[in-house]
Amino acid sequence: MRRSNEPIAWSLFGAGGMLLAFVGPGLIVVTGLLLGVLLADQPASVYESLLRWLSHPLGKLLMLSVVALSLYHTCHRLYHATHDLHLRAPNALMLVLFYGGATVLSGITAVVLWSIGA
């Protein structure tokens, strides 16, 4: 029997699901309410703070974890939703589209994060 990649996909989905359950609502309040409304009058200070945070390796790692695991979590669910909704397409294409998409976007984020403060 061929080895399945499902355990890897499910682990990333599970980790992302747990992360989103634990900090997802808070994160949305931070960008929506803190950055969008309450600190809207001091963009320079917010920029300096976030630049300092994302210049630190630990800050980069935290940000990349949030982004990548959220991507794998949501793309896993969306991939299975296409099946539930009977959107028929070659499975290999869908795998590349959803898991490949999550991987490419995570890679781009990693490269961008790497460039900050360098």
Partner: peptide
């Protein structure tokens, strides 16, 4: 299952924020 769609869109917004931050103030 549909909760994944807005959460995916939000993650994209987060990525654009990181990208814009990398471009400067």
């Amino acid at each position: 299952e549909a909760t994944a769609l807005p959460l995916f869109a939000y993650t994209l917004l987060l990525i654009t924020g990181v990208y814009r931050l990398s471009q400067g103030e």
